[in-house]
């Protein structure tokens, strides 16, 4: 799509394009995504990752659902297998980046001030502060927020959305924009299921399917090392898939549109 030659006009929208207006005025059809500038930067970031053979994963969830704890456990488990790097997004403090560095892994903290989400430009600036040589997987831990981060492409290949069992199992129904964008949903802190009587993992999964999302659902506890193997296996599989894509000059955007469609037909 571009906004110069008219190729963004389709039979579905061309009636919007040419409309008579008053004299001295002219109507211009634009039909461009409002976040086009962010999306361009995101595409640039993605190209950068692909050139270096990096798989970039965006982690999103509410605050306190265990993104950093999951990363700590994941980085420890993958220590001898892959080189990982982490971008941390928070409104304030270096705390999360320090937790990651304590694991011997490179981390850059983005302090957003009052901004409720990361965008592609913030991630791009962060990349300039990092040494990406030899990095296999880059994790981007977004600001804890189930609303805003879903609307901004960062250049990642995959979205992973966490839902801790101390939250409601109807979160996917309450925050459909976020959960629709998930390429994988992780139910975290499952060791607490034994003492909680109001979280049904099957219901959480059913709410996700109601969003027409075929993403795998994995149940785990990073702290108690439960169910981590499935998640690690998924990561290995995704890294292999990313390398296979790079080998044939392709890339991948997070689910939702065309990719989502392929997944649907594969599992239908």
């Amino acid at each position: 799509m571009c906004d110069t030659c008219g190729c963004n006009l389709t039979p579905g929208n061309q009636h919007l394009a040419f409309k008579p207006v008053a004299k001295g005025a002219t109507a211009v059809s634009v039909l461009k995504g409002l976040l086009a500038k962010n999306d361009d930067q995101a595409a640039h970031n993605r190209e950068h990752f692909d050139k270096r053979g990096i798989l970039a994963i965006n982690l999103m969830s509410s605050p306190g659902s265990g993104k950093t704890a999951l990363l700590e456990a994941t980085l420890t488990a993958l220590k001898n297998e892959f080189t990982c790097a982490v971008i941390e997004g928070d409104l304030e403090t270096e705390n999360d980046a320090e937790r990651i560095r304590a694991k011997g892994v490179q981390a850059h903290q983005i302090v957003t001030g009052t901004a409720c989400h990361l965008d592609a430009h913030l991630v791009h600036d962060a990349l300039h502060h990092m040494n990406l040589d030899g990095v296999d997987i880059l994790f981007i831990e977004n600001v804890g927020n189930l609303v805003c981060p879903a609307s901004f492409d960062l250049g990642q290949h995959l979205n992973v959305t966490l839902l801790s069992v101390t939250e409601g199992d109807d979160k996917p129904a309450k925050y459909p924009v976020m959960f629709r964008a998930a390429d994988a949903m992780l139910l975290t802190k499952t060791d607490l299921l034994a003492v909680l009587d109001d979280f049904d993992p099957d219901k959480a999964e059913a709410h996700l399917r109601n969003l027409a999302n075929p993403a795998p659902v994995m149940r785990l506890s990073a702290r108690k090392d439960l169910g981590m193997e499935a998640w690690l296996a998924w990561l290995r599989e995704q890294l292999a898939a990313q390398r296979a894509r790079i080998a044939i000059g392709q890339s991948r955007r997070p689910a939702i549109q065309s990719d989502g469609q392929k997944l649907h037909s594969a599992t239908a």
Binding site: A17, T26, A27, V30, L31, G33
Partner: peptide, 14 residues
């Protein structure tokens, strides 16, 4: 239902 699109703009040319 998932659009976020700048559809058109009317401009004052004179």
């Amino acid at each position: 239902g998932d659009e976020l699109l700048l559809e058109s703009v009317e401009l004052e040319t004179a």
